[in-house]
């Protein structure tokens, strides 16, 4: 096995490897997002977001990223995209909306980029 196999730090541009370090950093945020699988939890969040953040003991940075609904900030705060998708679901954002926000495009431009990938 090559040593490269163990090198988790060779950067891949625009990509965060969600490893143990990120999983620890984002635990509270991801745990809150995991709770959003349940419709009752989503309703409870919408009724009082601040109380919901407190319940899961989010950090100030994580709370600010949630309030900003900013996916890149949420990832930097340790969010994992599979759990963040449930947060995005509360606001009816599609994966194209999420992709567009992260790449600084409109959703239509992002969809066009995806279509071009088949050329």
């Amino acid at each position: 096995m090559s040593l490269e196999e163990f090198d988790h730090h060779t950067p891949i541009p625009g990509t965060t490897i969600f490893n143990g370090e990120m999983a620890m950093k984002g635990y509270a945020l991801n745990k809150m997002c995991y709770s959003f699988n349940a419709a009752e939890a989503r309703a409870e969040y919408l009724q009082d977001p601040a109380a919901y953040y407190a319940k899961f003991e989010l950090t100030d940075t994580q709370i600010q990223a949630c309030e900003n609904k900013n996916v890149l900030e949420l990832i930097a705060a340790g969010g994992n995209i599979y759990y963040l998708a449930k947060f995005a679901g509360i606001f009816m954002l599609s994966v194209q909306d999420v992709g567009a926000q992260q790449t600084g495009m409109t959703t239509e431009e992002f969809k066009e980029k995806l279509l071009r990938a088949g050329d």
Binding site: G14, T15, I75, I81, G99, Q102, T103, F110, A117
Partner: peptide, 10 residues
């Protein structure tokens, strides 16, 4: 890829 600035990579 769904996440990061590289979202939409195929």
């Amino acid at each position: 890829q769904l996440d990061g600035e590289r979202a939409g990579f195929i």
